Computed example of a mutant assay.
Amino acid sequence: MAIGTSSPPGRRFGYVRVSKASQDEAGQIKVLMERGSVQRKGDLFIDRGVSGAKASRPELDRMLATVEPNDTVVLFKLDRLGRSSGHTILLIEDLVKRNIHVESVVDGLNTRTTTGMAMLSLLAIFASMERSFLIERTRAGLDAAAQSGRRGGRPAALTAEQIDHAQEMHDKGKSASAIASYFKVSRSSVYRALGRSSA
């Protein structure tokens, strides 16, 4: 991981995200303008009504394409940036490698400082642990499901009784579309339930 440099600072850009269109981003903007030292509202990139779970966010993508070495990205909080702790760390590490600095006002992170870089390293460790725990829980869940005769993945669209009924309807000449309409599921769900290919 690169270490913050003492080069003259470039421009300061702020990134704001609100997950619901009805939410007001004014509070975040005020903090970035006053405490984050973002000088102009034109230097703010704002994603409105965009969930943090989405990998691609238009204004975030535009900001990442705009910033240059020695610029600084200012955030209200780290959780505004990424869709998970791991994704957030990856974004910050990528920016730091490009010699672009990151500041989080509420979290107190500043990659221009030695303390900030140490904090980022710790966050990376915790993000790695989180990923490991998630993988372990997922595997344990799949193993437990397999031992009890259940399969992993999405729940079945039709119950066992409904599948029997669907098979009877099919045997009597009902089309997959008619069966899907009857059970209010997709036609592909019917094909899967009947053990046929939808091709």
Score class of each variant (00 low, 15 high):
T114C: 04
K77E: 06
G27P: 01
G52D: 02
S104L: 08
S104P: 07
K54Y: 11
V74C: 01
E59P: 06
D24W: 11
K97F: 00
P58E: 02
S6Y: 11
D47C: 07
K97I: 00
S7P: 04
P8Q: 09
K41W: 13
V96M: 03
P9T: 13
R57G: 06
H87W: 06
P69S: 09
T111I: 05
F76E: 07
E25K: 07
R80D: 02
E93L: 08
A21E: 13
D107S: 06
K97A: 13
R57Q: 05
V102C: 03
D79R: 05
G82D: 01
K30F: 12
L81E: 08
R98S: 04
E68P: 12
S7I: 12
R12P: 03
L91Q: 01
V106F: 10
N70Q: 14
T114Y: 03
R35G: 08
T5C: 05
S6E: 15
K41Y: 14
E68Y: 14
G42W: 03
T66P: 00
A55W: 08
P58F: 05
L75W: 04
K77R: 14
R40E: 14
R40A: 10
R48E: 04
I29E: 04
T72F: 03
Q39R: 15
A26E: 14
D24K: 10
Q28N: 03
L78F: 04
H87A: 08
Y15L: 06
S6D: 15
D71R: 05
V31E: 13
R48Y: 09
L32S: 06
K54T: 11
